[in-house]
């Protein structure tokens, strides 16, 4: 018998359920409890970078928007640096930007929005340049384990074409499922996205 290899096993995931708002966004559940709350607004007035709105829906296998889904995003700042000690790249940290937010979808329309800044290009640990992107994590009733995907930006065509992760996707047509589309509305920059859980346009989800 060899020595036992005594690693622990990860705790199993369970669905966040329909009432995820109680714990993570209590105001959406309909009550006020914490002094300080997390939200879908990642910026302060002093955050550096181009203000953008991320706006989209998550669709089920029939094309119907999920109205009880919760998204979290994690992103680098405008200089391409994550606000985390493991990121030792050259870009300057921004004390006014944690880089993380969460949002519940609207109970009627299913719309999800984030107010953030456009991240800079990221230098990976191996020195590779990666196209600007936002990391997305999705939980809801019926989702047994959180889904990981990314959002890239439609106006970054050259960077996207060279991005090592987008290029891992075998079918070019599926890369498009990760591209948020830029437009301007009333002077604000909006990037629109659709996350399809199933179907011919199923979004690329990652096993990270």
């Amino acid at each position: 018998m060899p020595q036992p290899l005594n690693y622990l096993k990860e705790t199993a995931s369970q669905t966040a359920g329909p009432y995820v708002h109680i714990g993570l966004i209590p105001a959406m559940a309909g009550f006020d409890i914490f002094e300080k709350n997390f939200s879908n607004v990642l910026v302060t007035p002093n955050t550096k970078g181009e203000r953008i709105t991320l706006e989209g829906k998550v669709l089920d296998g029939t094309g119907t928007p999920l109205r009880d889904v919760l998204l979290e995003i994690w992103q680098a700042n405008a200089a391409g640096r994550y606000n985390h000690p493991a990121d030792r790249s050259a870009g300057a940290l921004d004390d006014e930007f944690r880089g993380w937010g969460r949002a519940g979808s609207d109970f009627d329309s299913g719309l999800v929005t984030f107010e953030t800044i456009k991240p800079g290009a990221i230098t990976d640990r191996t020195g590779r340049k990666c196209a600007p992107h936002v990391n997305v994590w999705i939980v809801a009733r019926g989702i047994n384990i959180g889904l990981n995907t990314r959002l890239y930006f439609s106006d970054e065509e050259a960077a996207n074409a060279a991005d090592p992760v987008l290029n891992l996707i075998e079918q070019p047509i599926r890369r498009k499922t990760l591209i948020a589309t830029r437009s301007e509305r009333a002077g604000k920059v909006v990037y629109a996205f659709t996350i399809n859980l199933q179907g011919p346009e199923e979004t690329v989800f990652f096993d990270v």
């Binding site: 669905t15 089920d60 296998g61 029939t62 999920l66 809801a140 009733r141 019926g142 989702i143 047994n144 889904l147 859980l197 199933q198 199923e202 979004t203 989800f205």
Partner: peptide
């Protein structure tokens, strides 16, 4: 609920 909400 997982049937229509699971990637294929």
């Amino acid at each position: 609920s997982s049937v229509l909400r699971s990637p294929r």
